[in-house]
C-alpha cells in the first residue's frame, strides 16, 4: 500500500467525511487549538533549552524547570495531535505529494525521539550533564521544534 492509497483511505472514512463537511470555521477552530498547543510546547522547550545553554532562568535547576513545564508539554502535544488530525483527515490525500508535509513529520519524529532519550536523560539526571552534552541537546531540541513550526507554516504554500 502506498502512502497515497493509505491517505486516500483515511480521507474517505466516515469521520474524515464528517469533519470535512463542517463549516469552514470548524477548521479555523482546529487551527486555534493547534497554535495554542504549539505555543505551550515551544515555550516549554525554549525555557528548558535556554537553561541548558546557561541562559534565561539560571536561578532554577534544569529538573525544576522540566517538572514545572512538563504538564504544558503534554497538554500541548495532546492539543496538537487532536487538532492536527482534524486538520489533516478531511484533506489527507491532498497532503501526500507535499514534500514539506513529509519534512515536518520527519522532524517531528526526530524531536519526539530526542525528547524521550537524550533530552530526558540530560534534563532529569541528578548530576549535572557535561556542558557540551547539555548545550548540544538544547541546540538540537530548539532547532527541531522551531523547524517543525516553520515547516508547518510552509505546508500551505506548496
Amino acid at each position: 500500500m502506498t502512502s497515497l492509497e493509505l491517505f486516500s483511505a483515511l480521507q474517505a472514512n466516515p469521520i474524515s467525511n464528517f469533519i470535512g463537511h463542517q463549516n469552514h470555521l470548524f477548521g479555523a477552530v482546529a487551527q486555534l487549538f493547534h497554535i495554542t498547543g504549539l505555543i505551550l510546547v515551544l515555550t516549554s522547550v525554549l525555557v528548558v533549552s535556554l537553561r541548558l545553554l546557561g541562559l534565561g532562568l539560571v536561578r532554577q535547576t534544569v529538573p525544576q524547570l522540566v517538572q514545572a513545564t512538563s504538564r504544558f508539554v503534554w497538554v500541548g502535544i495532546a492539543l496538537l495531535t487532536v487538532s492536527g488530525l482534524v486538520i489533516f483527515l478531511p484533506a489527507a490525500a491532498h497532503y501526500d505529494p507535499n514534500p514539506i508535509f513529509w519534512l515536518k513529520f520527519e522532524l517531528l519524529a526526530l524531536a519526539l525521539v530526542l525528547h524521550v532519550t537524550l533530552y530526558r536523560k540530560v534534563t532529569q539526571s541528578e548530576e549535572a550533564p557535561r556542558p557540551i552534552v547539555a548545550k548540544g541537546t538544547a541546540f538540537l531540541a530548539l532547532s527541531l521544534w522551531f523547524g517543525i513550526a516553520f515547516a508547518g507554516r510552509f505546508i500551505g504554500f506548496y
Partner: peptide, 13 residues
C-alpha cells in the same frame, strides 16, 4: 514562520 517563532518568545514567555 518568524512571526510564529517570535510568538513562542513573546506571548509564550
Amino acid at each position: 514562520g518568524s512571526h510564529l517563532i517570535g510568538l513562542a518568545f513573546s506571548v509564550g514567555l
